[in-house]
Computed example of a mutant assay.
Amino acid sequence: MRVLVCDDEPLARDRMRRMLERIPATLCVGEAENGQELLERVPSVYPDIILLDIRMPGMDGLQAASRLSESDSPPAIIFCTAYDEHAIAAFKVNAVDYLLKPVRQEDLEKALSKAGRVNKAQMLAVRRETGVAQPEQANAKEREYISVRSRKGIDLIAVADVRYFLADQKYVTVRHSQGETLLDETLKELETEFGDRFLRVHRNALVALSYIEALEHKGNQFYLRIQGVEERLAVSRRHASSVKKLLQSL
C-alpha cells in the first residue's frame, strides 16, 4: 500500500513514517504540510491511502478530503487528529477511519487493513473503466509465499516482497529485495492468482502495484520506476494508455 502522510507538525510526520516502516507491504511515498500541498503531491506519487491531520494552517484536512472526494477514484482517507469533535464531518467526506493522536501502532495497522480493502474494490472498478485486463478468476486464498527450487532445496519468497515478474521463454524471473530468482510458473498463472496486486504492463511483465513509484516517458517509450530497483521496466505501447489512466486514478 502506497501511503502519503499529511500533517503540519514535522515530529508527527516523522513518527507516522516510522510506524509505517514496521508494517509489511506498506510504503510511505511522500509527505505534505497542509491540504494545498497534499493536493499538489497526490497526482505525482499515486497514494493508495492518505493519513491526514485535520487542523492545519491554510487548507485543513477536511477541505482537502472534500476536494479529493470529487475525483473518480480518490485515495482512501484515514484522519489522524488530536480532536474528536470532527468525527462526523470526517465521515461525511468518506473517510475510512478516524484515529485519535497519539496514534497507536495496532490501531494504525487495523485502519490500513480496512483502507486496503476499500482501495482494492476501487482498483477493480478502475480496471473495468480503463480497460486494464483483470484476472480471469481470483483464487479464494492467494499464496503469501512462492516456493522455488534452489541448490539448497526449497526457498520461500514472500509475495509482498516481489517487485515484478518478468517472463523469458519458458521461465519467469522473480525480482525481489534479495535479487532475482527463476520460477517454473507461467505469467498467465501468476496474473490469474495475483491480478489484484500486480499490474500487467507488457506481454512479458507483471509489476507489483505497491512498489510502483512513477511512470516516466522517454522518447517514444514509457518506463516504470520501481522502488528498490535501479533499472526501469518498459511499458508496452499496447498497455501504456491504460496503465497511465489507472495510475492517475489511484
Rank of each mutant, 00 (worst) to 15 (best):
C80S: 13
P102G: 02
T81Y: 04
K92F: 02
L112T: 00
N139W: 01
M56L: 06
V132S: 13
D84F: 04
A133C: 00
I77E: 12
E106Q: 14
L112C: 02
A90Y: 03
L108A: 09
V126S: 06
N119V: 11
M56P: 14
G58V: 08
A82R: 03
M59V: 11
K120F: 03
K120S: 14
G131A: 13
Q122T: 08
R128L: 02
K152C: 03
S73A: 05
R127Y: 12
R151H: 12
A133N: 11
D84P: 07
M56E: 03
Q63N: 14
L112D: 05
Q122C: 01
D107W: 01
R151I: 13
S147Q: 07
K141N: 11
R128N: 08
Y98K: 00
H86I: 01
D97E: 09
V103C: 03
N119M: 13
S147Y: 10
P57R: 10
R128K: 15
V132M: 15
A76T: 07
L68Q: 13
A64R: 10
K110Y: 11
A82P: 02
A95F: 08
S150C: 15
K141I: 12
P135G: 13
A125C: 02
S150L: 14
T81F: 04
R127T: 08
H86L: 01
P74M: 09
K114A: 12
E85N: 01
A138W: 00
Q137T: 00
Y145G: 00
Q63I: 15
S73D: 14
L100T: 10
V96G: 07
A140G: 03
K114W: 01
P74F: 13
V126G: 02
P75Y: 09
M56Y: 10
Y98A: 06
N119E: 14
A90D: 02
V103T: 02
G61S: 13
R143M: 01
D72M: 05
I88K: 00
G61V: 09
Q63S: 14
A65W: 04
L99I: 03
R128Q: 14
R127P: 15
K114Q: 11
D72V: 10
Y145E: 04
L124I: 04
I78E: 02
A89N: 11
S150Q: 13
V96K: 01
E142K: 08
A90K: 07
I146K: 00
A125G: 10
A111M: 05
R104P: 15
S69V: 09
